[in-house]
C-alpha cells in the first residue's frame, strides 16, 4: 500500500518534471547569444572559426528540433551538459554544491515549521490577549523583512558587534578540525543563515497553526473531549494540536520551493558555496546551461521534498490513506 502510494506520487510527478524540462529548453532558446558568446565575452577572444568549431562541438549549430531532441535524450541520461564557466560537467558542479543547500533548506524547514507550530500554538492558547497580538504582529513584521537584509543585520549584530558567530562561509578556513569540533564549527556557521531563512517564513506557519488551533478549540471533538472529563493537557495536545498540524504540514510542502529560492540570496549574503550561490554565479557569468540545470535540479528537489511531506502527512491523517489508495 505504501509502495503503491509512493509509486503513484512519482508517476504523478513525471509530467510536472517533463513540463519543466521543456519549459527550460525554450527559456534557453529565448536568450540572446549562447554559451559560446558568453565564453568569448568573458575571455575577450573573438575568433569566428573557433566559435563555429565550439558550436559544432556543443551541438549549438543544429536546428531547433534536433537540439530539442538531443537535449531531451541527454536529460534522460542525466547528462546536463558542460559548464563553460566552471570547465566541468554541469552534473558534477551541481552535485558538489547540492548537499550544503539541502542541509540549509532542510534545517530551515524544520526550524521554521516547529517554531511556527510552537508560537502559533501559544498565540492560540492566549487568544485575544497581548501575547497573541505580540506573536502575530512580530511574525508579520519578520515576514515583511527581505531575507538578505535580515541576514546582513544578523551579521552586523552577531558577527561584527558581538563577535558570537562567524561572518559567513560553511566552515572555518584553514582550521583543521575533526569529529565533534568540525560538526560544532558547521553548526556555528549555519546558525545565522538558517535562522534568517526560517524567520522570514515563520509568519506563515504561525498564522496557520494559530488559525487551526482556534478552529480545533471550537471543534466538536475538543468539546466532546472536555465532556469526557479529560485533563486540559490531553485535550490541547491530542485533540487540538494533533489535528491542527495538518494544514501546517501541507504548507511546509508548498513552501519548499520558496525556501530553496530564498537560499539563493541567503547563500550569497553568507558566502555559502551551495546551489543558490551557484545560480547567482551562473547568472553573472551568463552560463545559461548551468542555470537551466540548476532550475531542473531545484525542481527535482522540490518534487522529492513534496513526496516526503505527503508521506509524513499520510502518517498524520489516516483519512488520506483511504482515499488515495
Amino acid at each position: 500500500m505504501l509502495l503503491r502510494f509512493i509509486g503513484n506520487r512519482v508517476w504523478q510527478a513525471l509530467p510536472v518534471v517533463l513540463i519543466v524540462a521543456v519549459g527550460v529548453f525554450f527559456l534557453l532558446e529565448m536568450a540572446e547569444g549562447d554559451a559560446v558568446d558568453a565564453y568569448f565575452a568573458t575571455t575577450g577572444a573573438g575568433d569566428a572559426g573557433l566559435a563555429a568549431q565550439l558550436r559544432e562541438q556543443y551541438g549549438l549549430a543544429d536546428s531547433i528540433g534536433t537540439r530539442f531532441l538531443t537535449y531531451m535524450t541527454r536529460l534522460a541520461t542525466l547528462d546536463l551538459g558542460y559548464s563553460v564557466a566552471f570547465s566541468r560537467p554541469v552534473t558534477e558542479v551541481i552535485a558538489s554544491r547540492l548537499p550544503v543547500t539541502l542541509m540549509l533548506m532542510g534545517t530551515s524547514i524544520l526550524v521554521s515549521g516547529s517554531l511556527g507550530v510552537l508560537l502559533g500554538g501559544i498565540a492560540s492558547w492566549r487568544r485575544g490577549r497581548p501575547t497573541d497580538a505580540g506573536i502575530t504582529v512580530s511574525a508579520l513584521v519578520f515576514n515583511a523583512m527581505p531575507g538578505f537584509w535580515l541576514g546582513l543585520l544578523g551579521i552586523i549584530l552577531f558577527a561584527v558587534k558581538l563577535r558570537w558567530l562567524p561572518l559567513g562561509g560553511i566552515g572555518t578556513i584553514g582550521a583543521d578540525l575533526s569529529g565533534l569540533e568540525s560538526l560544532l564549527d558547521t553548526v556555528r556557521h549555519l546558525v545565522l543563515p538558517v535562522m534568517t531563512l526560517a524567520i522570514t517564513y515563520l509568519a506563515l506557519y504561525v498564522r496557520l497553526m494559530r488559525a487551526a488551533m482556534n478552529e480545533a478549540a471550537d471543534s466538536g471533538w475538543a468539546l466532546a473531549a472536555r465532556a469526557r472529563g479529560l485533563p486540559e493537557s490531553k485535550i490541547v495536545l491530542r485533540h487540538m494540536a494533533r489535528p491542527a498540524l495538518l494544514p501546517v504540514v501541507t504548507m511546509l510542502g508548498l513552501k519548499a520551493g520558496a525556501m530553496l529560492g530564498g537560499s539563493v540570496v541567503i547563500e550569497t549574503v553568507f558566502a555559502i558555496p551551495g546551489l543558490g550561490r551557484l545560480s547567482y554565479e551562473a547568472v553573472t557569468q551568463r552560463d545559461l546551461p548551468l542555470l537551466a540545470a540548476i532550475l531542473l535540479a531545484g525542481t527535482l528537489v522540490v518534487v522529492i521534498v513534496n513526496i516526503l511531506i505527503d508521506l509524513f502527512y499520510r502518517k498524520l491523517d489516516p483519512r488520506i490513506a483511504d482515499t488515495t489508495g
Binding site: 468539546l223 466532546a224 469526557r228 489535528p243 491523517d317 483519512r319
Partner: peptide
C-alpha cells in the same frame, strides 16, 4: 457522560 448531535464531529479524526 455526554453525547452530541454529530457523531462525526465529536470523534477526533486522527
Amino acid at each position: 457522560g455526554m453525547i452530541f448531535q454529530n457523531p462525526g464531529a465529536s470523534l477526533n479524526p486522527v
